[in-house]
Design a protein around this nucleic acid. Structure first.
Length: 446
RNA sequence: GCGGCCGUGGUGUAGCUGGUUAACACAAUUCCCUGUCACGGAAUAGAUCGCCGGUUCGAGUCCGGUCGGCCGCGCCA
């Protein structure tokens, strides 16, 4: 009857019925029955009910130890009697009979209700206490799904023979021009936080053909919305030897399809806990030109869709085809960055595209200009300083195949897949206009 | 940055057209409970209702300002 020296994870307890084991974790709830005490112990693999019988020496400690305290339990794994089984919870058919209880770390009184059902905080409070709220199964489920999304992107890219590279975070000039950037002090000069790995992935593409990166990017735009942050994870891909933007569309479609399938397969429990239904992608995602979208909506053509348009076109497509996704291509050339390829027959419109889902933009990409003279024409028209993007331009002087790429926002994708209302819920440590961990005050200090 | 809404014990909320002990749930403290299912029961403590000023005999409730938050728009991933 000597206990195993090693710690056993909660998820492995079923195979230890009849044995004495050591389980370590956090006390997530206690049900004090007077003479006997039940508590749930949580580790990284899940939760199990522990029972402290009246005769146990641990009974006093079990009553006193605060929720979220870290404990070590030596106990016997018992199959529960038929009438005491609970099919609704993990390990509902077994329980841990506590023989010895040790408090490894006593927790303070919790500032709010952390119970599964009672956990109902204002988003502001949730974020102000991120260090604690992260322990809640609901939040853990969100970030597990996010991890699978990012992993799956990587996996699929590698399967398709894409090469992963690390794009720089500090850059000398702004890639797209115009937008707000964070300026940083760089020794005696100035530098900026990157807004996009765009120019770098194009450079790397000229060497490796197919490339991707998983990178933090930064936007200083003062956007106070439910879907904007100043720091996000951008999933970027770029590929050479395409025939048209449609090849990029197809690759991005397969990527999203793969990610959704992986989430479905690996995150079944998380999806159930969060009550989320994955968006449906049909065999051929509906693809409309911007002009066609405006016609469908019955509104005058404009240079881009506004959020209201995006919501409505998604609703219409969903109703007509059952697809939660829709590609929109062919934006006015001048409304997009300088590197986007203008349509050869109708140069007023370009070969840029966006993928919308459930009313929100998920992905943006398209074909890029690969011909040096054309690129320089655009650099001039867009009013950019060639000296500032010389490294990028150099690559394009020495032979670049027809190419294109796309980028996905990891947080926005997480939010949309899980049906979350605010992108901050889908971000572990969200940064926005008013917050870096803590809230910013008037002096700009945390 | 502009527009709309909100700010009540630790947390989440209620408080109707202003009327004097500000309510409820969870958490907390004390007690009861040998099979509970992020239990049950009893009691206790805890809020000058974001802040400043005004109207009024009287303000959580009305008005103005201020600070904070949320949502929408522009821009985007």
């Amino acid at each position: 009857m000597s206990p195993k020296a090693q710690r056993t994870l909660v998820r492995d307890l079923r195979t230890e019925v009849g044995n004495t084991v050591v389980v370590k974790g956090w006390i997530s709830v206690r049900r004090d029955q007077g003479k006997m005490v039940f508590f749930d112990i949580r580790d990284r693999s899940g939760t199990v009910q522990a029972v402290v019988l009246p005769k146990s020496e641990a009974i006093e400690l079990a009553k006193e130890t605060r929720l979220e305290s870290v404990v070590s339990v030596e106990g016997k794994v018992n199959e529960r009697p038929e009438k005491n089984r609970n099919p609704k919870v993990q390990n509902g058919d077994i329980e841990l009979e506590v023989l010895q209880l040790t408090t490894l770390s006593q927790a303070e009184v919790l500032p709010f209700d952390m119970s599964l059902d009672g956990f109902n905080l204002d988003l502001t409070t949730e974020l102000d206490h991120r260090a604690l709220t992260l322990r809640h199964p609901r939040l853990q489920a969100i970030f597990k799904v996010q991890a699978v999304i990012i992993d799956s992107f990587r996996e699929f890219m590698k399967q398709q023979d894409f090469f992963e590279f690390q794009a720089p975070a500090m850059v000398p000039a702004t890639a797209e021009g115009g937008s707000e950037v964070f300026e940083i002090k760089y020794f005696d000069s100035k530098a900026y936080l990157t807004q996009s790995p765009q120019l770098y992935k194009q450079i790397v593409m000229t060497a490796f053909e197919r490339v991707f990166s998983v990178n933090k990017v930064f936007r200083a735009e003062p956007s106070a919305t439910t879907r904007h942050l100043t720091e996000i994870v951008s999933l970027d891909a770029e590929m050479a030897f395409i025939d048209s933007w449609k090849d990029v569309r197809d690759m991005s479609e397969k990527t999203v399809k793969y990610i959704l399938a992986q989430v479905q397969e690996k995150c079944a429990d998380e999806l159930t806990l969060l009550g989320a239904t994955l968006p449906s992608m049909i065999d051929e995602t509906p693809t409309l030109s911007l002009t066609e979208v405006f016609e469908k909506l019955g509104v005058p053509a404009d240079k881009d869709l506004n959020p209201e348009h995006e919501r409505r076109i998604c609703e219409i497509i969903k109703e007509e085809t059952g697809s939660d996704f829709v590609y929109v291509y062919g934006y006015p050339t001048r409304a997009k960055p300088f590197y986007v390829y203008p349509n050869a027959e109708n140069p007023e419109f370009n070969e840029g595209m966006d993928l919308l889902c459930r009313g929100v933009e998920w992905l943006s990409g398209g074909r890029r200009i690969n011909e040096y003279n054309q690129l320089m024409e655009h650099v001039e028209k867009w009013g950019m300083d060639p000296a500032k993007i010389e490294m990028f331009l150099e690559a394009f002087r020495y032979g670049v195949p027809p190419e294109g790429g796309f980028a996905l926002g990891a947080e926005r994708m997480t939010m949309q897949i899980l049906g979350l209302k605010n992108i901050r819920e889908a971000t572990m440590f969200p940064r926005d206009m008013n917050r870096i961990d803590g809230r910013l005050n008037d002096d700009g200090e945390v």
